[in-house]
């Protein structure tokens, strides 16, 4: 696939250099390796804590467990600069509109980690009238971490799982950069008599008639 006619490669360099073009690289999945290697080692989490689990997240960021070993020490307070949303705690109905909004503001490729029992499925507070039984009812989740709270080791293990996921992704398959058909923002829930997901409006109207 080299283009030897236009670019001269000196003889002594031939063993080290291969010439190709972008289209071929992408098609042959050759770009994925270096691209994913770069991404997996510099996932910037959003500086965003919800509840008790956030304390363990901070402990993980501190010197004893040291998230910096994974290139994750750069916590960004702004969603526009972060790659990963760690949902670290109980998601309440009052909070979920903000979380969906934050998620929408993050640039692709973005990842969501549900840290702990609450974020994964409601946890000990699941039955509460103001509690969302798992953030995955509103935004897609990539990694679930069990525990209440997950220990720092468990959290790190979750990050490693996320890295594995990143390794397995390919620019050819993912939809991050699709110009023709861009990904729609998720609908932001509204605080009504109870939390209302715009995707459920039809169902709400139907139940009123029943």
């Amino acid at each position: 696939m080299t283009d030897e006619k236009t670019i001269e490669v000196p003889d002594e360099m031939r063993a080290q250099v291969a010439l190709t073009n972008m289209a071929d690289l992408v098609k042959g999945n050759l770009l994925d390796k270096p691209y994913n290697w770069g991404r997996r080692n510099s996932i910037w989490p959003m500086m965003f804590g919800l509840a008790c689990c956030a304390i363990e997240m901070i402990a993980t960021a501190a010197s004893r467990y040291d998230m910096a070993r994974f290139g994750m020490e750069v916590m960004r307070p702004s969603p526009r600069q972060s790659d990963m949303l760690i949902v670290s705690g109980t998601v309440t109905k009052k909070m979920v509109p903000q979380i969906v909004r934050l998620y929408n503001q993050m640039p692709e490729p973005k990842y969501v980690v549900a840290m702990g029992a609450c974020a994964s499925g409601g946890g000990p507070f699941k039955e509460g009238y103001n509690v969302v039984a798992g953030i995955d009812k509103y935004i897609p989740v990539d990694v679930y971490i069990s525990g209440c709270p997950p220990t720092p080791q468990a959290l790190l293990n979750g990050f490693m799982k996320l890295q594995e996921k990143i390794d397995s992704q390919s620019i050819n398959r993912e939809r991050w950069y699709d110009k023709e058909d861009p990904i729609e923002a998720l609908p932001v829930p509204v605080l009504g008599p109870d939390i209302m997901d715009p995707r459920d409006y039809a169902m709400i109207t139907k139940q009123a008639k029943a």
Binding site: K93, K126, V131, V132, P193, Y201, M203, T205, A208
Partner: peptide, 23 residues
């Protein structure tokens, strides 16, 4: 509990509430 709830999540609306869009 999700399986028992018609919305599949932790929500309930008052009887006759049918105008979520106008809320």
């Amino acid at each position: 509990s999700e399986d028992e709830n018609q919305f599949g999540k932790n929500v309930q609306y008052p009887k006759g509430f049918d105008k979520p869009k106008k809320w």
